[in-house]
Design a protein around this nucleic acid. Structure first.
Lengths: 345, 345
DNA sequence: TTTATTTACGAAAACGTTTGCGACCTTCAC
DNA sequence: GTGAAGGTCGCAAACGTTTTCGTAAATAAA
């Protein structure tokens, strides 16, 4: 089971030098003669010497790794974000450690606790659907652990944040439905404690009022675990379809909710868009091969991951403490497909 | 930027004890009196002491983290596998560090090199499509770095492996097409250097010969980067459709290839399954809302991740060197949907 | 009372680095 | 010939733990 590797000590012994000389030679210190340097470098290269990153971390007080916590990796939006995170982290020589909260507050706390206890230089966070209280993060932030939020953010912590223009995305999606002539537009959305939920809700409401309509609370359904539990979505949908005036269109405000809703409608043999139209937030790469193809608000997920990571590393490597924080808002894109196009009656 | 945390030293100073006493007290050594233990524990708890995992790693020679390398995380199959990996790793208190090869041999080598240089206790690997040579892994394996392969494995390294029953999956998919009456069944598959490609190819061929047909090389198209580059898939498909006797059915042998092919057929306005039927390997959670709904061979991805991690941790924590290795073969499931059902002419 | 045993703790080395400082030698200017 | 300067290297401390060993005091056995 051991994985013996060569250390500086071994090099020193072999070359009859001291450890410090070898160390300095390896990092090209001017204190060391060119001759010795070459000798050390040659020996190191021959024997495939790699500095022990753990020892370096201990010495430097930085682990060169960043922690990521998301609700679930098995979701096109988040996997694309992580793709972005991983690409810039790797390039800047950071490791990426991933934890999933599975939309559970407890797991989020435990995961963050685990990541934070100094094994990680900074955190990239998207809150879980259950999270209503961010004291666990506030504590860490006050202690000086750098963090960047994306997607599901909180106002209670002053740091960099990266989000999509959720308001506008939802506004455009709803307006599109209105333009198609739909008047009873429902929304199925995530937990009301999530920032994205509120932002998308506002966009939806604004589009309605701009069109002279009054948002009806009956038409707004919150799904507590953001679609992770299909039964919750099922119930929300059933309640909508049981209303006296059934919605003629539905706006689903998150990735998982969109695909689940479409799937449920199909199972219930409800024709989309004839009986009910559908527009959803989704980053599924397959939205155009759905039946019907799904009109969707797409977020620049990869870019969100990259931006968040850039900001975090900026935080990590800054000499002076940063007090001015950015909230980057990336634009969404509405792709209109069949699921929302009004059919001739 | 600093994140000052309390150390054993601080506790020792505060309580007028020695570092070693505190350390022992914290781990409940019998050498320490009950009274002192309580005192130390209380102080540690009050001040929210967390042992520094990096120092522990250095001391113990184990980092309690495992490295994962896959081609791409943004893919339902792999994200589900990682979901499985993360869940059991977390439970056994290991961190999961993820790297993507993007199907590039160079990136695979660099990523593994980076992970392996002692920051990781073991590796979970699925080879990239470009990888024809595994010397970089053989070296590490010989040095004693434990590794487990899944999905895209190699024969050249003796260790635990976890795969799906690719032969049977492909056999059943092809047989199903044959049973539907299709006779010119093409296959679009990944790079020929991948184990999964060969296994699935064999299953496909066996089903054909069992039905008295002779596999025709013209009907077998290899896509070098496993569908990461849509143009490659496009070209493979175009070549198939340009044949004198066009295929009446296509079997796509990987996740990305399946969705891409369906999407391309749709763009070309080729009716599925009327003009050409389709069965593919995919773990997309949305296969039933595709148009047409996609008949698919599904792999137990979550379970593969869990099994691979269990096996790796078993390797890591075994007292005596393990010489007997397992090759776990998990069963696939063929879900028949519309894309392969023969339509009345 | 002496000796042996137990209990409770501390000193120090070790894991593999990095780094400030001092030691020694050579070279050069005056 | 003396002093300063510069070049080259090693010593030792430090990062935060764990662990081996030693030792003093207290207790038990003789």
């Amino acid at each position: 089971m051991k994985f013996e590797a060569i250390t500086i000590k071994d090099i020193a012994k072999a070359l009859h030098l001291s450890v410090s000389t070898v160390s300095k030679a390896l990092r090209g210190s001017h204190e060391i003669s060119e001759e010795t340097k070459q000798q050390v470098l040659a020996y190191a290269r021959e024997n495939n010497y790699r500095p022990n990153p753990i020892a370096q971390s201990l010495k430097r007080g930085r682990s060169k790794s960043i922690g990521v916590i998301v609700c679930n990796i098995d979701n096109n939006f988040f996997s694309q974000v992580i793709n972005g995170i991983e690409s810039v982290a790797r390039q800047k020589d950071y490791n990426v450690i991933i934890t999933q909260s599975q939309e559970s507050y407890e797991r989020e706390v435990a995961g963050i606790e685990n990541l934070s206890s100094r094994s990680v230089d900074g955190l990239i966070i998207s809150l879980s659907a259950e999270t209503k209280n961010v004291d666990h993060l506030i504590r860490l932030h006050q202690k000086g652990l750098p963090m960047v939020f994306f997607d599901r953010i909180t106002d209670e912590i002053a740091t960099h944040k990266v989000i999509a223009n959720n308001f506008k995305g939802a506004y455009e999606a709803t307006r599109h439905l209105l333009q198609q002539g739909y008047r009873h537009i429902a929304q199925i959305t995530s937990s009301g404690s999530l920032s994205i939920t509120l932002e998308r809700l506002e966009g939806y409401k604004k589009a309605l009022t701009d069109a002279g309509l009054t948002p009806d609370p009956q038409y707004i359904k919150f799904v507590q675990h953001g679609g992770m539990i299909p039964e919750e979505t099922q119930q929300a949908l059933a309640e909508l379809l049981r209303l006296d005036v059934k919605p003629d269109a539905i706006f689903t405000a998150s990735d998982r909710l969109s695909t689940t809703t479409l799937s449920l409608l199909k199972k219930m043999r409800i024709s989309v868009p004839r009986q009910v139209a559908l527009v959803g937030f989704t980053n599924s790469i397959s939205a155009d091969i759905f039946y019907p193809s799904l009109s969707a608000v797409t977020q620049p997920a990869l870019e969100m991951g990259q931006t968040a990571t850039d900001l975090l590393i900026q935080l990590l490597e800054s000499k002076r403490p940063i007090t001015q924080f950015q909230k980057k808002v990336l634009e969404t894109e509405l792709k209109i497909r069949d699921s929302s196009i009004r059919q001739p009656q």
